[in-house]
Structures are given as structure tokens and as C-alpha cells.
Design a binder for these strands. Structure first.
Lengths: 194, 194
DNA sequence: CGTCTATTTGAATGTACTCAAAAGCGGTGG
DNA sequence: CCACCGCTTTTGAGTACATTCAAATAGACG
């Protein structure tokens, strides 16, 4: 299996010895997902973190009116999981599925915890990864609170220029928190102004 | 100094040896804050995490229209910081101030990092703390995306029953993302229905 | 007691949503 | 290769939730 991408991802934050690298790699497994295929289902316990090597996943929750709200996109080189379910061991509310045919590497929570025991360096890696996640969520929360829809769309386009062009608008609408209809109208309005 | 509360807080997630406890405690310092006093200012680098032992702090950001948006309340037994600034070393966008006369314990980032080197167990503590923070932020983000103002207020009251009764409405409005005027109208509407 | 801030109330407004329908686009099977 | 089907995007009219602005009232603090 080719774990080059995930090892480089890890090595951005910590430096692994040969032994650590080996102990890490044996804990990994891979999985292919067809477009629309679910990796994590709501009301089930999420037992692993996923690292995307190809394609693109998303995590989302469905509200009582049937609307999907996207928490995260995960293109290659990103981690994704239902962290609530992962750390509580309780069934989660998130679904994680593939927006296109994708490849992921899975790390079981139990293996991850063994890794933490054996090599505290991994604890550091995930501590830092999680800190970055908090920062991203803060920024997104502030966007929700202080910006209007058009500005959130702008912010999205600036932060994720690639995703902006590859994802269906409907998905972007669901991420920035507007209806697809309204996003369409915003873009039309933009063009008129130019 | 009395570090009982913070030690109990730590011991909820990990178990410290005598030596670890000592090395931790020597890194701490305390500070008193008067109501409205700023602990962290925007555009300055935040160099510590704060643990509240008395009173209540909040972290917030001011948007370009001058509106404050509260990211977090920190009553006793809670941690608070501008994590973006803390981990990046860059000047942050958050202010942290006291909503009433308060006492906090400060842990410098550099001391914290030394602690991580010396005792990886602390890395675990903060890894778990940070994971919980991600979960809380996810839940709040989903509330913003899927609930309307009244429901967000309900959710707030259920999650923080104590804060609901002690905080000024204006602060709660700023946390749930509505104007103080509208929160007032929502409550009036509630009473009419009962 | 007086001042400053927080809360309430009301009227007018605006941003974003709902519902409906048409047009566009992509994939699939004949 | 074309025709069809389903899904996404666009467009429009009507609506609703929440804001803005203004003014009055209530409360807190020195």
C-alpha cells in the first residue's frame, strides 16, 4: 500500500523514527468509496478517523426538516471523522460520504490509543491537528455570526479556491448555510454588478 | 496559592504523579480581574491559556460594524484562550474580558510546551480538552445552520441553565447570534404563549 | 440622586427562505 | 449516438424571520 501521502502529512507536524513509522503503518487500512457512498452513518458509532488520499468526502448532519448541513469537506490530505462519536463512543449525528469516487486510509480509535501509549509523539500530532481544527471552527462560527450570506460565500471562495470550482453549488450552499436557490441568486447578482 | 480546582480539573482526564503535579504547579500564576477588564486584547499575541477559578470571562470578536460576537463563556472550572493566536504566535482577533470580578490561573504557552516535553501526559490532557472543544463547536455550528433564533435560545438555556440566569441578556443575545432587541421580543412572545 | 447602560416596545425595512416552474446538464441504456 | 431520466441550477413572486432605528422604561452603580 502507498502511505506516502499520510506519512508526509504526519511529518508536517512531528518527525517520526523508523520504528514509529512502522508501528503507525501497521495500524492503517485503506478503503475505496464510490460517489455518494457512506463511510459513517448517523446513529452508528464512528470507530475510526479517515485520511483522504483521493477524491473528496464531506461530513454533514440532517436537521428535522430534512436539510443537510455540511460541517466539513475533506479533499486529499485532510482528516475527517465524527469526533463526537469517536471520543464518546456514542452513536453520532453525522453522516460522512463521498462526493466523488474516493480513497481513504482508516485509523481505528483503539489502534490510535495504543499508538498514543506506545509513542506519545502521536498524541502530539493529534493534539496539534485538533487545535487547528478548533481554530478553523472558530473562524467559521464568527463568519456565521458576523457576515451575511454573500460575504460568507466570498470567504469560502477565497479559502477554498479549488473546491469552489470542483464542488456542485448545492454543496457549497449547504456549507455556507444558504439555500441553493439563494446562492444561485447571489451569483447572478454578482455578475450584474461587474 | 490554592490550585485545588485546577488540579481536580486536570485529574478528571488524567492522573498525575506527585512529580508531575509539582512541575505543573510551578508553571502556574494567578491573576485577578475587575469586571470589564481585558485579559487578552485583539491585535496582540496571546501567550497563555487561562483557567477560571472565580467569576466569568468571555472571548469575543468585534466585527466591522462594531458588533461583538461571543465565542465562549468561561465560568469557573473552564479554560479559555485565543487559541489561534496561541498556536500561531500571531496577533489574534479575539478579546477576552471579565463579565464580573474574576480570578484566573494562567499557564504560559512556553511553559506548557516544556511540560509536554517533560510529561507527555499533559499532552494527552490538552489533546482531550481540545477534542471536546471541537465537539462543542460542531454542535454550535449545527445549531447556527439548522435552528432559528428561538430554538438556539432554548438550546442555550438547556445547556447553560446557570449562565442563563446570571448573565445579562445582551451577552446571551451576542452568543446565540441575535440582537438584544430581538431576544427581548422572543422572551415576551414566550410569555404570551404560556 | 443622577447618570449610564440594559431592556422593552413599535414601526418600517431587508435579507434570506419557500414554493413553483422552467431550463440546463450528466449519466445511462437502448 | 441519441433519447430519456434524474438531479442541479436558474428565475420569479410572495413571505417570514430577524434587523434597524427610535423612543420610552427600567435597573445598576457611583
Amino acid at each position: 500500500m502507498d502511505y506516502e501521502l499520510i506519512l508526509r502529512n504526519i511529518n508536517k507536524l512531528i518527525t517520526l523514527t523508523k520504528k514509529e513509522e512502522e508501528d503507525f503503518v501497521v495500524a492503517l487500512s485503506t478503503r475505496s468509496l464510490k460517489k455518494k457512498q457512506l463511510l459513517v452513518k448517523e446513529n452508528e458509532v464512528c470507530k475510526f478517523s479517515a485520511f483522504v488520499t483521493k477524491g473528496c468526502l464531506r461530513s454533514y448532519s440532517t436537521d428535522r426538516n430534512g436539510f443537510e448541513h455540511i460541517l466539513q469537506f475533506a479533499p486529499p490530505d485532510w482528516w475527517i471523522a465524527d469526533i463526537y462519536s469517536l471520543i464518546s463512543g456514542q452513536p453520532g449525528k453525522l453522516n460522512i460520504d463521498a462526493l466523488e469516487d474516493s480513497e481513504v486510509i482508516l485509523l481505528n480509535r483503539s489502534d490510535q490509543e495504543e499508538l498514543f501509549e506506545k509513542h506519545p509523539k502521536f498524541e502530539r500530532f493529534f493534539r496539534i491537528l485538533t487545535e487547528k481544527s478548533v481554530v478553523a471552527n472558530h473562524s467559521r462560527l464568527l463568519d456565521y455570526m458576523g457576515l451575511q450570506a454573500m460575504e460568507r460565500y466570498d470567504a469560502f471562495c477565497r479559502r477554498y479556491p479549488t473546491l469552489t470550482h470542483t464542488l456542485p453549488q448545492k454543496q457549497i450552499a449547504s456549507y455556507i448555510g444558504v439555500t441553493p436557490e439563494f446562492l444561485s441568486k447571489m451569483k447572478a447578482g454578482l455578475l450584474r454588478k461587474k
